[in-house]
């Protein structure tokens, strides 16, 4: 790892000042991607700003929404009684990320800020039409994800919380990479008052997470497994890599959609 400077701000204002003062500062929000990246010398930030003490943890009900502090770790989301009660699919998704030790450190804010094309959380955020609140503004999920590892976040903008509408009509099915547990394909289906019926797919798209209009139209017509086979999954914009070809991912999208749908019941 290249030399760097570590700082642990006490609040969000201090964190933003630290970012402004740094030449190339990076926010540390669990570090399950960032620290391995630093160890491989793929990044050389002059300053690491640890968000663990700025007060962004905690899960709370706010009316029809479940609000997750950006620094909520995956293990907290997995075991939260509120999440299990109001959004069980999100608890299941969190419990399937990486392994126990990764879940003890990695955070939802870190995950969606990084927007890895194979991360699980972006699928939930998009399918559930969640709202992302930052130090500057509140963004809809549709406006937030802008491409592979790309988001609408500006420099010196920090995610503070993510607000999900409560629903039991939601389900996630993932075909995980056998080694890393990253999604080779993950499909999140949700029906919410705010977003309607959505099917969001992670792990497959060349531009990261995306909604599949064909699957959404088919399921709007008939919310049944039988409706899925007739849908055409265009593989021209899907990823092809050492883990899976685009063609195979297209196949997995249908299969994971079926599994997710069966789990909604």
């Amino acid at each position: 790892m290249y030399a760097t400077r570590y700082s642990k701000p006490k609040n969000i204002e201090e964190a933003i000042s630290a970012l402004q003062a740094a030449e190339d500062g990076k926010l540390l929000a669990g570090g399950m991607t960032l620290i391995p990246t630093l160890k491989q010398r793929l990044a050389a930030p002059d300053c690491l700003i640890d968000l663990c003490a700025v007060g962004l943890s905690g899960i709370a009900e706010e009316g029809d929404a479940l609000v997750l502090g950006a620094m909520s770790c995956h293990a907290e989301v997995e075991s939260s009684a509120d999440v299990q009660k109001h959004l069980p699919a999100l608890s299941l998704l969190a419990g399937g990320i990486g392994d126990r030790q990764v879940r003890n450190c990695g955070t939802i804010g870190g995950s969606i800020a990084n927007n890895d094309p194979a991360a699980c959380y972006p699928a939930a955020v998009l399918a559930l039409a969640a709202r992302i609140t930052t130090s500057k503004r509140t963004l809809s999920a549709d406006d937030y994800f802008t491409g592979m590892f790309e988001t609408a976040l500006e420099e010196e903008e920090i995610i503070t919380k993510i607000s999900f509408p409560k629903t039991h009509k939601a389900s996630y099915a993932k075909f995980g990479n056998p080694a890393s547990r990253y999604a080779m394909v993950g499909v999140f289906i949700a029906k919410t008052d705010v977003g309607g019926l959505r099917v969001a797919i992670t792990g497959a798209g060349q531009d990261g997470v995306f909604r599949h209009s064909g699957l959404e139209a088919a399921l709007a017509d008939s919310f049944d497994v039988a409706a899925i086979d007739a849908v055409d999954i265009d593989d021209s914009e899907l990823m092809s890599d050492i883990h899976a070809s685009a063609d195979y991912r297209a196949h997995l999208i249908k299969e994971m959609t079926k599994l997710a749908l069966q789990a909604i019941g």
Binding site: Y6, G31, M32, I35, P36, Q101, V102, N104, C105
Partner: peptide
């Protein structure tokens, strides 16, 4: 809490 000490400063 269990953590991977190679992935924490």
């Amino acid at each position: 809490v269990s953590v991977k000490s190679c992935t924490m400063l």
